[in-house]
């Protein structure tokens, strides 16, 4: 076989191999619906094959053909010019591309009817219809798995893949409240819409300890912060909790409807509130995430709530 042809075949195979590697490392073509992936890969393949084919054709002509034709009268710095006709293939494909262009403009993406937003709406509707139906009734493990999948893309950038808050840069989701957060809320009060309504909690100047009948002291704050952060276990700080916090948050810290949120553990509804309203606390501001579907919220709520129970 001719060396040029062989080289062209090797190049084509190599480039197709690279494309295959790319598709593989992206985790495949993305299911039956994704025309974009398929067309892009097809385009890449066509590009390689056509270029190799055409260039090989001309290199073969360099090797075996000879130049001929009628020379023009002019001559520039010794450069002549043949009066050869257009290469037929080139001319035909040129016309073909013009025909294709007209088709694309009038029928492919019809100028009077196509709208990219319309196309987007259809894409979203089809996507939602497919997955909403499939995941309408999930068991708990599916719910958690789906929640984790949302978490990785939407939440992990701040809370970390381990949901540990990456060294204090965001809340550690494995516990309901860090010591620092409890203190922050007691010092500054709080109003984070965790109950779905605006229900402010007073700061320390409004927090009485029923045991001492006085405002809560620094030492008591330290103690109760440890107690709450520790999951309301042990004895240290328990009495302060009972005297100061239990009235609203309940003796077990699980909160009361319309009065105070659960501070013993995270509940799905609370996570949902944080996602919808955002939250401000000891670390900083967490923005609201309003871009998820109902199913995604449900899954994410369940998953995050499950983290604090582990």
């Amino acid at each position: 076989m001719n060396k040029t042809v062989l080289a062209a075949i090797i190049v084509v195979i190599a480039m197709l191999g690279f494309t295959y590697v790319a598709v593989g490392s992206a985790g495949g073509m993305g299911g039956d619906g994704d025309w974009v992936n398929k067309l892009a890969v097809l385009g890449a393949v066509v590009l390689v094959i056509i270029t190799a084919f055409v260039v090989t054709k001309y290199v073969r002509q360099m090797q075996s053909d000879t130049a001929s034709g009628k020379l023009a009268d002019e001559n520039w710095d010794g450069i002549g010019e043949y009066k050869n006709e257009l290469p037929l293939g080139w001319a035909v494909i040129f016309l073909g591309s013009v025909v294709w262009a007209i088709w694309y403009f009038l029928a492919g993406y019809p100028v009077n009817a196509y709208s990219q937003i319309g196309e987007y709406n259809e894409e979203v509707a089809a996507h939602d219809a497919k997955f909403d139906a499939q995941f309408a009734n999930m068991d708990e493990s599916t719910l958690n798995a789906m929640g984790e999948s949302v978490f990785i893309v939407q939440c992990a950038p701040c809370h970390g893949l381990q949901a540990d808050g990456m060294g204090g840069k965001a809340a550690d989701l494995h516990q309901r409240l860090a010591e620092k957060s409890v203190k922050y809320v007691i010092m500054n009060g709080g109003n984070n819409n965790l109950l779905g309504t605006s229900m402010p909690m007073p700061d320390r100047n409004g927090l009485m300890n029923a045991n001492t009948n006085a405002l809560i002291t620094d030492a008591e704050i330290d103690a109760v912060a440890k107690y709450v952060a520790g999951g309301l276990k042990g004895t240290e700080g328990a009495s302060v909790f009972a005297g100061t916090c239990a009235a609203c948050h309940g003796p077990d810290g699980k909160g009361m409807e319309m009065v105070a949120p659960n501070i013993a553990e995270m509940s799905p509804s609370m996570v949902d509130m944080v996602l919808h309203h955002g939250k401000k606390g000891a670390i900083g501001q967490m923005p609201a995430f309003t871009n998820l579907t109902a199913v995604q919220y449900k899954a994410l709520d369940a998953y995050v709530a499950s983290l604090s129970k582990k």
Binding site: T19, V21, S25, A26, G31, D34, A40, H127, V150
Partner: peptide, 25 residues
């Protein structure tokens, strides 16, 4: 070539739950 096609596909990819399959990083 590989980098572009890989990244383009990963950006588009949804997982079995219909969520984005990859975070940007």
């Amino acid at each position: 070539w590989i980098a572009g096609i890989t990244q383009g596909m990963m950006w588009r990819a949804h997982d079995e739950f219909g969520n984005l399959a990859y975070s940007f990083i």
